[in-house]
Amino acid sequence: TEKQERAIEYIRRLGYSEEEARRILKKANGNPDLAKEIARRIG
């Protein structure tokens, strides 16, 4: 989804690889607090 793409872009800007960014997002899917934090940061 567009939100996922924005989140991946944001995480990659922090210096993670695409693969790492996707792994972090997968974790965020099972972790509402982390997901909220990422969403808050990407606006």
Rank of each mutant, 00 (worst) to 15 (best):
R22G: 04
S17H: 03
R12N: 03
P32G: 06
E19W: 13
I11N: 00
R23M: 14
R40G: 07
R6V: 08
R41A: 13
A7K: 02
P32M: 06
N29K: 13
K36R: 11
A39C: 05
R12F: 04
I42K: 10
I38H: 04
N29M: 10
R12K: 14
R41E: 10
I42W: 12
R22I: 09
A7D: 04
G30P: 01
T1R: 13
I38G: 01
I24A: 02
P32Q: 04
E9I: 08
K27S: 13
I24Q: 01
D33I: 09
R6D: 14
Y10E: 09
G15S: 01
K27A: 15
Q4N: 09
L34S: 04
K26H: 11
I42Y: 13
E5R: 15
R40N: 10
E20K: 05
K36N: 04
E2F: 04
E18T: 08
L25W: 06
Y10L: 05
A7C: 09
R22W: 14
K27D: 09
R23K: 11
P32K: 03
I8E: 03
K27Q: 14
A35S: 03
R23S: 12
I38R: 05
E9T: 06
R22D: 04
L25G: 00
R41T: 12
Y10S: 06
L25K: 00
A35T: 02
K27I: 15
E20I: 08
Q4E: 12
K36D: 03
A7R: 02
E9K: 09
R41S: 12
A39F: 02
D33K: 11
E37R: 15
L14R: 03
G43A: 15
I38M: 10
L14T: 01
R6K: 14
Y10Q: 06
N31G: 02
P32D: 05
T1V: 12
R23Q: 14
E19V: 11
R12V: 14
P32V: 12
L14E: 02
A39V: 05
I11V: 02
G30Q: 05
I24M: 07
A35D: 01
I11W: 04
G15Y: 01
A7W: 06
Q4D: 08
R13M: 14
Y16W: 08
E18K: 07
E2S: 12
A35N: 01
R40Y: 07
A28E: 01
K3H: 12
E20M: 11
G15V: 01
R23F: 12
E5W: 10
I8P: 01
T1C: 08
R13L: 14
A35L: 03
E18H: 07
G30V: 02
I8A: 03
A39D: 01
R12Q: 12
N31H: 07
K3C: 10
E20F: 11
Y10G: 03
R12Y: 04
R23Y: 14
A35F: 03
R13T: 14
Y10F: 09
T1H: 12
E9D: 14
L25A: 01
L25C: 04
A7L: 09
